[in-house]
């Protein structure tokens, strides 16, 4: 029943697409997004930005340098823990703090760019004006979802370089869920070797072999919101709980969610819902031929959507037997 109202929406989205591409307004969007991608690849910069979700506010420094065609980027949290990340060409070299077991670089992980044509199917993208961010002129681009399964974004792109200087995530009630915003940006001073050098806290990230087949062989989803595609899946063993966890990550080109599946082994648990600013987590108990499982959906999507995704996970055996 819930899918019915979606059908015209989906058809509308697809049918509208060719017309959109020809529209001069959309050509402008495409230009803005291409400039953004180009700026990430070619522009040297350093700056300070803030990140805010409900009740939590943090400040960060970013150094970004392009050298011999390679993009080197270092990020450092300026308040509280000195959290740090160093990336070279989209591959994470080192991070401070501990990564969850199994999280690491896979051979296929690489930089991903906003694809305006793909996004236009799921978001109504418009330039809605101009303003200033970090003392610089910016264009405001709004991305409003065409269905109820994702949040709206507002991007502020630097007129001079095309860099994203501000990003807001907004729910269907118009409430702000998170804010990412530069407070200062310098495109003249090229970051030095010293500034790009990670501290001793930054630990190398392991290369993780892909195990997509394993996770995919066991599970499938009856339903994910239209536009979301599987981008990563693997099975890991939790070193603390000794439990085997299958992980699937989906992506619509902008928003992401992960599905975690874990066998319960007779443990009794309650269904759970949690929300931390932009990120929602929904746990659902699922009875499958393989035994009782807990399905947890975590992502930057509305809670109702996460719930539906959790309820739509199926053990693969069911299908092969039928």
């Amino acid at each position: 029943m819930r899918a019915l109202p979606l059908i015209p929406l989906l058809l509308g989205g697809w049918l509208a697409l060719p017309a959109h591409a020809a529209d001069p307004a959309d050509a402008r969007i495409a230009t803005l997004f291409n400039r953004l991608a180009q700026a990430e690849r070619e522009q040297d910069f350093q700056g300070t930005f803030v990140y805010e979700r409900n009740g939590i506010f943090s400040t960060h420094r970013i150094w970004h340098r392009v050298q011999d065609g390679k993009v080197i980027e270092r990020l450092l949290q300026l308040d509280g823990l000195p959290q740090e990340v160093l990336r070279v060409d989209g591959k994470t070299q080192c991070v401070s703090g501990t990564l969850v077991a199994g999280v690491g670089n896979t051979p296929d992980s690489s930089g991903r760019l906003l694809d305006p044509l793909k996004l236009m199917s799921w978001y109504d993208i418009k330039t809605v004006g101009e303003t200033r961010v970090a003392g610089r002129e910016v264009d405001i681009v709004s991305l409003k979802p065409r269905d109820q399964h994702r949040y709206a974004f507002e991007l502020h792109l630097d007129k001079d370089t095309g860099l994203p200087l501000k990003s807001l995530l907004i729910n269907d009630k118009g409430q702000l869920l998170e804010r990412f915003q530069f407070t200062g940006l310098n495109t003249q001073a090229v970051p030095t070797e010293q500034e790009l050098k990670p501290s001793d806290n930054c630990k190398a990230v392991a290369q993780v072999p892909p195990q997509a087949a394993e996770a995919l062989a066991s599970w499938r989803s009856d339903w994910v919101p239209p536009g979301f595609e599987l981008v990563k899946s693997y099975v890991r063993k939790d070193p603390q709980t000794k439990a085997t966890v299958s992980s699937l990550m989906y992506d619509d080109g902008l928003a992401r969610f992960s599905v975690f599946l874990e066998s319960l082994d007779g443990e009794s648990v309650t269904d759970t819902r949690a929300q931390l600013g932009p990120t929602v987590a929904v746990s659902r108990h699922l009875t499958t031929p393989k035994g009782d499982m807990m399905v947890t959906v975590v992502g930057e999507i509305p809670i109702g959507t996460a719930e539906r995704i959790a309820l739509s996970m199926r053990a693969q055996d069911v299908q092969t037997k039928q």
């Binding site: 990430e40 990336r87 994470t92 991070v95 999280v103 991903r112 990550m249 992401r256 969610f257 992960s258």
Partner: peptide, 13 residues
């Protein structure tokens, strides 16, 4: 895990 995967995954921003 979700946040870290996402952080490692993309460089779009």
């Amino acid at each position: 895990q979700h946040a870290q995967e996402a952080a490692l995954k993309g460089t779009e921003s």
